[in-house]
């Protein structure tokens, strides 16, 4: 099954990812604040998770058997809110309320306010530990749900991430998948300047994880990586997904300034044209 990925599936996902990108930009533009770069780099992965990989239950949103997703890089939440709205957790129109007072869509994900958010995040580095807690309980209760955690690459500077990598190995959490959105940029510059991560695969292997390196914008590769993770037993999997920060909008791509900047009217117009055109 791994080798024959339905072409229809890929084009379906591509369509969805485009929709996500449009919504991300509109939201951040409406809020006039937010983090477009890291939301755009994660679009394909998030699309694959919510539209193909994960088992979610709209009728019972807190279904104890559902798969969980934790966006450890919480500032990228526009991509998560977009996909949740698209799936029907809340009305698409609500996206326009991002970061506004009384909105359910906080500047960083909030499990108590936003339907479909499995855990509160935003303070970097903590999502993997939370995911480990969930995966451990899944094992304890003999449930077959899976837990997905997306980390930003800058987060790997945080020691708690390495504490969590150690714990994931100890408890043999094969029901846990980490995806590193490896766009190689963090707030103050590129990883190499701020705090180098290479050789990233060696590091993760030295912590005894199953490591899969993949192109984070290629649906074929992403789908295969998730499938491989499912087939791996007795150890957790980390997918190192090479991505481009700001992907899809030429003037945002690989530009660290777009980590946390909202587009103005003109920039939004150009960006949307580019995304729709591609």
């Amino acid at each position: 099954m791994v080798d024959t990925i339905n072409k229809n599936l890929v084009s379906f996902l591509e369509e969805k990812a485009t929709e996500l990108r449009i919504n991300i930009l509109k939201m951040i533009h409406a809020a006039q604040s937010g983090h477009p770069g890291g939301a755009l780099s994660a679009a394909e992965i998030i699309t694959t998770l919510y539209c193909h990989e994960m088992r979610i239950n709209l009728d019972n949103q807190r279904d104890p058997d559902r798969d969980r997703f934790i966006l450890s890089k919480g500032h990228a939440c526009p991509v998560l809110y977009s996909v949740l709205a698209m799936k029907g957790f809340f009305p698409i129109e609500e996206l326009a309320t991002l970061r506004k007072i009384n909105s359910r869509l906080q500047g960083h994900p909030d499990m108590k306010k936003t339907p479909g958010v499995d855990f509160t995040t935003g303070s970097l580095g903590n999502g993997l530990s939370i995911g480990i807690g969930m995966a451990l309980m899944g094992k304890l209760d003999k449930k077959d749900f899976r837990v997905y955690v997306m980390l930003g690459c800058g987060e790997l500077d945080e020691g708690i991430v390495w504490e969590a990598f150690m714990a994931g190995t100890k408890f043999k959490l094969d029901n846990l998948v980490v995806i590193i959105d490896y766009n190689k940029l963090q707030l103050d510059g590129d990883n190499d300047e701020v705090m180098p991560l290479e050789p990233i695969v060696d590091k993760l292997e030295a912590f005894n994880w199953n490591v899969i390196r993949t192109n984070g914008h290629d649906f074929n590769q992403i789908i295969k990586a998730f499938a491989k993770a499912r087939e791996t037993h007795n150890k957790p999997t980390v997918i190192v997904a090479d991505t481009i920060k700001g992907k899809g909008v030429s003037f945002m791509e690989n530009k660290v300034d777009w980590h946390g900047l909202a587009p103005d009217d003109e920039q939004l117009k150009i960006a949307l044209e580019e995304i729709r055109g591609s």
Binding site: N126, M134, L136, G159, I160
Partner: peptide, 22 residues
């Protein structure tokens, strides 16, 4: 669950576990 000498991790893991109803 002995998490090792890693209290930040311990606390966040606990939060995740509690969200599963424990």
């Amino acid at each position: 669950f002995n998490i090792g000498v890693a209290e930040q991790n311990e606390m966040a893991i606990a939060a995740g576990a509690a969200s599963c109803g424990k």
